[in-house]
């Protein structure tokens, strides 16, 4: 269950969100809106230089937010960008992306070329994916997860969804604990690897058992909600405060985005 352990470590570590860094000090609403703005800008740009600038900004923000850069690179590069890199490799060659050849070689009698279009397409794809993932992970690392889910109200998402997200978040933690403990118990009794069909039965039994327990939990959760004053309509507290620093950050993001748009449309055409 390494995926579960990794998930637990990744999601529930509020360690970085509690540090006194640049991004941690911003209002979560302003920070989320500006980060979404960056992610949309990354999606819209057709220029590798702009993507490199935004990636460099992301790494600078990581430093200013007192996040270990090695940890951040490991966290952002493992899986999605590495997987995307593997996907992008065949697109370098003329068999997938025809165009102007840059390097030509022969493998087992097959003449292959890396094309200019293939190389730039793959580089653009890789940088776009990596920069987007980096901004999304940085937002999640520097914001308390509960606050990040509450911020969704800014986008007009109904409170019932926000409440569902909040409860869901709490129960993911509980379920991960239950599953981990069950697997530890199985491991301590079995003590060796099992045939894959037996393994499939163990997984299915665990999922069935988890649902059985989840369903029983529903009644208890509802009683707990009633005891805390739930009367059919969710009410969520709003303790966010916009400060001068947030105004400065917002001005910086707007200025930077305008500068990047100017560079893209007037200087790099």
């Amino acid at each position: 269950m390494s995926a579960l352990s990794f998930l637990k470590g990744a999601i529930f570590a509020d360690e970085y969100a509690s540090k006194k860094g640049l991004l941690q000090s911003l209002d979560p609403r302003v920070k989320t809106v500006t980060f979404l703005f960056f992610i949309i800008q990354i999606l819209l740009t057709k220029n590798l230089f702009i993507l490199l600038c935004l990636y460099a900004l992301c790494l600078l923000l990581t430093l200013f937010s007192r996040i270990n850069v090695g940890f951040f690179l490991k966290r952002t590069w493992i899986f999605i960008p590495l997987f995307s890199l593997l996907i992008a490799i065949p697109a370098l060659f003329n068999i997938v992306t025809p165009g102007e050849p840059l390097i030509t070689f022969t493998i087992a009698g097959l003449k292959l070329s890396i094309t200019r279009q293939g190389l730039f397409g793959a580089a653009l794809f890789m940088m776009r994916v990596t920069t987007s993932v980096s901004f999304a992970v940085l937002l999640s690392l520097t914001t308390r997860h509960f606050e990040l889910l509450k911020v969704l109200r800014v986008f007009g998402i109904p409170q019932v969804f926000v409440m569902t997200l909040g409860i869901c978040y709490r129960y993911i933690y509980l379920f991960v604990e239950i599953v981990e403990n069950t697997y530890l118990a199985i491991k301590s009794r079995v003590g060796t690897t099992v045939h894959y069909t037996r393994g499939q039965h163990i997984v299915a039994w665990n999922i069935a058992s988890l649902w059985n327990r989840s369903y029983q939990l529903n009644e208890a959760v509802y009683q707990a909600m009633l005891s805390r004053g739930y009367r059919g309509e969710p009410v969520l507290g709003d303790d966010f405060k916009i400060m001068a620093k947030d105004g400065l950050w917002l001005s910086f993001v707007i200025t930077l985005s305008a500068a990047l748009a100017y560079v893209q449309y007037y200087l790099l055409v």
Partner: peptide, 23 residues
């Protein structure tokens, strides 16, 4: 009304299902 938390619990359940490694 009393099944409202079931949605959230169902969401957490579907989240966790995706994390199970099936041999």
């Amino acid at each position: 009304a009393k099944q409202v938390p079931l949605l959230a619990i169902g969401a957490a359940f579907s989240f966790v299902i995706m994390m199970f490694n099936v041999p």
